[in-house]
Design a protein around this nucleic acid. Structure first.
Length: 570
RNA sequence: UGGGGGAUCGUUCAGCGGCAGGACGGCAGGUUCUGGCCCUGCAAACCAAGGUUCGAAUCCUUGUCCCCCAGCCA
């Protein structure tokens, strides 16, 4: 995708790095990393971080970005997640080369670091229970108390730590703690736990270990080992930085620079892995790849392109203030991308039968339609036209309001690429009064949609030939949540109470033009006047195609209707 | 009333002592065989109060509000 005037993004992180390069810090090297925990699927918030880290590496000469899994908690992490994460990063368009790492690669090294701290009297084995540790920690305003085990000898600590590793103790009975300052105003410095006993099988190291380093003891050192120059993370780790600095200083090892930025919040959805997991587990959505999910697998299945997501990540910027990006911006990014590349096609979601009374019974014409007005190179196709057609139910109104330009009794409109037609009769269901069929006449002089006499119509409708169209199922998606910030549970409500009951609407009697026969899973189209749709990658088949609506077209008629309703209701 | 961060159009990102700007959204037009795209125009903001200065969104002071931290999660 080519952007006409894409200026290279600048933000405070890139400025800092630019200064560092200019000052020849780290010999001018720029090395970042994307460090996910393999305990869930990646979402669009991760995409922001991925684009930042891989983007910065790509923008700097010789710059590199590692993919490293922070797999320090075997009880929550699974291979399923590491595979999906790798796939998602690749799909987004980034490449970690041969630099795929795991924090678990460093378990031996980390153990040595811990031993080193013990030998320097900077760490000790503590026998306090989790509850006791919490009590001893103090509170935000009250300093903590020192553990009674704080002054054990180096020898005793070495022995105990070795026995922890050997599996002599039960989970939770002992921990290794850094010896820093129980009175520190920064709670992270109050003798934090750096190793805990977890008799759990690790997805990579198996049962080699029954003690595991905490994230805090792992992350900074892993960055150091990999020679990461700029360790970019989110705001909540800002007060962990002094702790990471402390470890690096005590261990006398390479010191990456940590820079924090605000994580992405998107309106009308949730971004926390815990909440997303809850939606999956409770069956609110069909899975991590439900097209309503903000996960990368979900967005992909919904029809989003990596280009659009990258464009979005560029538009939202990077800063330190907490923010909530309007999901309308994501809509804009995908529309802009798909407008350029998606072939146009006609599909009728809610069919209304139309009979062209003066059209010969057995005649069929092949009319030429352009595949993409934005890109003439995409060529044209033939669309069959015959006596019986379908149009969209909402394109006809018996009693049209002022600004309704579409079909109505006695009114003439154009059928796209076909003919001008005029509505001459309306057939109703005898019982319900519902309009079930329209009778129209066509003007043979307007073949292709042009009027030789230059007369104008106010509307152009999409349509399909009844006999030639294919049936299809269509999934209409809308925001998962009605409330912009479902996380705002101040009135006591659970975030799920703000779920949009209409976030998915399934239409089973849709008709699509024959050109869509055999459309491959994942392929994207614009259904003219309706929106962008893609062939579902899971539930679609040649016999029973399923299309997912990625996003609607901008719809000014919908806005007019809405404004009108508001006025009449009020 | 412990510590760490942050406050600029509705939203978001710029502006780093010298005309507050862009994008999305909104509104109004133009164009149009998609009520799409595209084009034009309009409305729209410096948390507050003091101070320094010829000049303050920017520097200083004092407030106010918001976010994060009391996992052996990350």
């Amino acid at each position: 995708m080519t952007k006409t005037d894409s200026t290279p993004p600048t933000d405070f992180i890139r400025s800092i790095i630019g200064e560092d390069v200019k000052a020849n810090k780290n010999g001018g090297r720029v090395h970042t990393r994307f460090p996910p925990e393999p305990n869930g699927y990646l979402h669009i918030g991760h995409a922001k971080s991925i684009c930042l880290n891989f983007g910065i590496a790509a923008e700097n000469k010789g710059g590199l970005c590692n993919l490293r899994f922070d797999d320090t908690n075997p009880s929550k992490e699974e291979v399923e997640y590491v595979e999906s994460i790798k796939e998602d990063v690749r799909w987004l368009g980034f490449d970690w080369g041969d630099r795929l790492f795991y924090a678990s690669d460093y378990f031996d090294k980390l153990y040595e670091y811990a031993v080193q701290l013990i030998k320097d009297s900077k760490a000790y084995v503590c026998d306090l229970s989790p509850e006791e540790i919490r009590e001893y920690r103090g509170t935000l305003t009250k300093p903590g108390k020192e553990s009674p085990y704080r002054s054990r000898s180096v020898e005793a600590n070495l022995d105990l730590f070795e026995r922890m590793r050997a599996g002599e103790f039960e989970d939770g009975s002992h921990v290794l703690r850094a010896k820093i300052d129980m009175a520190s105003p920064n709670l992270n410095m109050r003798d934090p736990v750096i190793y805990r006993i977890l008799h759990a099988e690790h997805h990579r190291t198996g049962d080699k270990w029954c003690i595991y380093p905490t994230y805090d003891f792992t992350h900074g050192q892993s960055d150091s080992i990999e020679g990461i120059t700029h360790s970019i993370c989110t705001l909540e780790f800002e007060d962990h930085r002094p702790l990471y600095d402390w470890f690096l200083e005590q261990l006398k090892i390479f010191h990456p620079q940590q820079i924090e930025f605000a994580r992405l919040n998107l309106s009308h959805t949730v971004m926390s892995k815990r909440k997303l997991l809850e939606l999956v587990e409770q069956g609110v959505v069909s899975g991590w790849d439900d097209p309503r999910m903000p996960t990368l697998v979900g967005l992909r299945r919904r029809g989003y392109t990596p280009e659009a997501i990258r464009d979005f990540c560029e538009r939202i910027g990077v800063a330190k203030r907490d923010s909530m990006v309007d999901i309308a911006l994501l809509d804009h990014s995908i529309r802009e991308d798909l407008n350029q590349r998606a072939p146009r096609v006609m599909a009728v979601l809610r069919p209304l039968r139309v009979v062209i009374d003066n059209y010969p019974e057995d005649q069929v014409e092949e009319l030429e339609a352009v595949n993409n007005p934005e890109d003439p190179g995409m060529g044209t196709r033939k669309v069959p036209f015959s006596r019986v057609l379908y149009i969209e139910q909402e394109d006809f109104l018996e009693d049209p309001p002022k600004k309704f330009f579409r079909l109505a009794p006695g009114r003439e409109v154009r059928l796209r690429y076909a003919y001008f037609i005029k509505c001459v009769d309306v057939v109703r269901d005898e019982k319900t009064g519902e309009v079930v069929e329209l009778h129209c006449t066509y003007d043979p002089e307007t073949r292709g949609g042009w009027a030789p006499d230059g007369r104008k119509v106010k509307a152009t409708l999409h349509w399909v030939s009844a006999a030639h169209s294919l049936s299809a199922e269509v999934h209409l998606y809308d925001h998962l949540f009605l409330k912009a910030d479902p996380t705002d549970e101040k009135d006591g409500a659970d975030f799920k109470t703000y779920l949009n009951p209409n976030s998915l609407e399934t239409l089973t009697s849709c008709r699509v033009e024959p050109a869509l026969a055999g459309a491959p899973p994942g392929s994207r189209y614009q259904f003219e006047r309706l929106g962008y749709f893609c062939v579902d990658t899971k539930d679609s088949s040649d016999e029973a195609p399923v299309f997912n609506r990625t996003v609607t077209l901008r719809d000014t008629w919908a806005k007019i209707k809405k404004a009108h309703n508001k006025n009449t209701d009020g």
